[in-house]
């Protein structure tokens, strides 16, 4: 099993697709962070656009930007399995590992690990930009207060779990374009609406789980007023989504003839 996971990690590293996903997730992180840096404590029409950096919620918002690119981890996971069907490399993969559930399990582990590494990269870049910005604007420069360890640690975990969820979804859908449309449409449209309209339902969705793990609301506004699961609950929820998709796929789409 360890050999299979190492082979999957080599598969990811040996094409350049992951670099694109890393660039996109870092781009989203920096974009969100840029808004916070630009607007924190700045008055617009006589009102503060965002509370000043002395407000703990704003400090949390700075660091929560690290998790803005989680969707790209889901896409990375989706491509990790649908790409095998698209390029017909799935034939070779099943020749090497004819017990197909073992290949899927190895991919789940490998993409989780790769997602964690992406999370670390996003966190490092976020801290490298947010810390000096907070210092300049007179905010807290402690990485231990204001829930910062939870936000940053949660971001790393959320990225790993999102890659895993994407992999399970991709195994189920098989068609790359369809799977990505489902993921993006769900995250950007269905979830965004449900989170606001029905927060009691929203907390059980992937984005709600990320909010639970990182203890921060992605984007603007405080996360305090929304129904949110405990952090461990959020992590368990994402893991359950990924494993459930993968388990259903094992007994349906993954068993199909490879012609």
């Amino acid at each position: 099993m360890i050999a299979l996971v190492r082979a999957e990690l080599l598969k990811i590293r040996s094409t350049r697709m992951w670099l694109g996903m890393l660039a996109l997730s870092l781009g989203f992180t920096l974009l969100g962070l840029g808004f916070y840096i630009a607007l924190a404590g700045v008055e617009m029409n006589g009102e503060a656009a965002l509370p000043p950096v002395t407000d703990p919620a704003t400090v949390r918002g700075f660091y929560a930007a690290a998790s803005a690119g989680t969707l790209f981890m889901m896409i990375l996971g989706i491509i990790g399995i649908t790409g095998e069907y698209r390029y017909q490399t799935i034939t070779q993969a099943f020749l090497v590992t004819p017990r197909r559930y073992r290949l899927l399990a190895a991919k789940l582990v490998a993409y989780f690990l790769f997602g964690l590494a992406f999370g670390v990269a996003n966190v490092l870049v976020t801290v490298a930009v947010a810390l000096p910005a907070l210092a300049v604007k007179g905010g807290s420069t402690s990485l231990l207060d204001n829930d910062v360890p939870t936000i940053l640690g949660g971001t790393v975990l959320a990225m790993g779990l999102y890659a895993l969820v994407g992999l399970g979804l991709g195994a189920l859908v098989r068609n790359q374009v369809a799977a990505i449309i489902v993921a993006v449409g769900w995250a950007q449209l269905v979830e965004a609406i449900l989170t606001v309209a029905l927060p009691s339902v929203g907390q059980w969705l992937p984005a709600g789980a990320v909010r639970a793990i990182t203890r921060a609301n992605i984007g603007f506004g405080g996360g305090g007023e929304l129904d949110t699961l405990p952090a461990w609950g959020g992590a368990a929820l994402l893991l359950a989504y990924g494993l459930a998709f993968a388990a259903i796929a094992t007994f349906t789409t993954v068993r199909r003839d490879i012609t």
Binding site: A3, L4, R6, A7, E8, L10, K11, S14, T15, R16, M17, G83, Y87, Q88, T89, T91, Q92, A93, L95, V96, T97, P98
Partner: peptide
């Protein structure tokens, strides 16, 4: 199975972005 049976099924089953050597290294590792 790879050590028992060698199979070459179709010419298209490669990722276009992966080098020939890396393709073989992946099979070795797995």
């Amino acid at each position: 199975p790879v050590a028992r049976v060698g199979a070459a099924l179709e010419a298209t089953g490669f990722h276009p972005g992966r080098t020939a050597r890396d393709h073989l290294r992946v099979v070795c590792r797995a």
